[in-house]
């Protein structure tokens, strides 16, 4: 399943970059994150409770950031498994200066979903994934602008 999209954050690029790669910020903004612990350089183990409506589940797994090209782009790898199934995805996040000190973010990723949730929820997965990404960036923005 491909996830692509754009998002504009009302904050300058270096601030946005700082937030995107900061574990506390990720933990606060990635929807449903219950725990996020550093286990290595730019690698974190995590537990997330995510879903839509009543189809919810806890996934445990890890997040890894790599190929960091501050402050332009980086790659993120996420894997998690739980009772509803498992997810595994890599994506590239690119930042560019927008107008009026904003940041234009472009993301491009590939997510594999398996297990019961994959078998049943095909039509919703793309929508859910994009929604979660949107929520993440929206939260990052509010954390910056809220200060």
């Amino acid at each position: 399943m491909k996830i692509t999209g754009k998002h504009t954050i009302n904050a300058p690029r270096d601030q946005v970059w700082g937030r995107l790669i900061d574990p506390d910020s990720i933990a606060a903004c990635l929807p449903g994150v219950e725990t996020l612990d550093k286990v290595g350089d730019d690698e974190y183990s995590m537990a997330m409770n995510i879903g839509i409506g009543m189809v919810k589940g806890t996934y445990t797994g890890k997040v890894r950031l790599s190929n960091m090209n501050e402050p332009t782009d980086y790659q993120m790898y996420v894997e998690g498994s739980g009772r509803p199934g498992f997810i595994k995805g890599t994506g590239t996040v690119r930042l560019a200066d927008g107008e009026n000190s904003t940041t234009d973010i472009e993301y491009n990723g590939d997510v594999e979903v398996g297990g019961p949730v994959g078998a049943v929820a095909q039509r919703m997965l793309g929508g859910v994934a994009n929604r979660m990404v949107g929520q993440f960036f929206g939260c990052v923005e509010s954390k910056i602008t809220g200060e």
Partner: peptide, 12 residues
Amino acid sequence: LLPMMKLRLAAP
């Protein structure tokens, strides 16, 4: 609801 529970995608 019941199909989701039977697949264990929902577990109220």
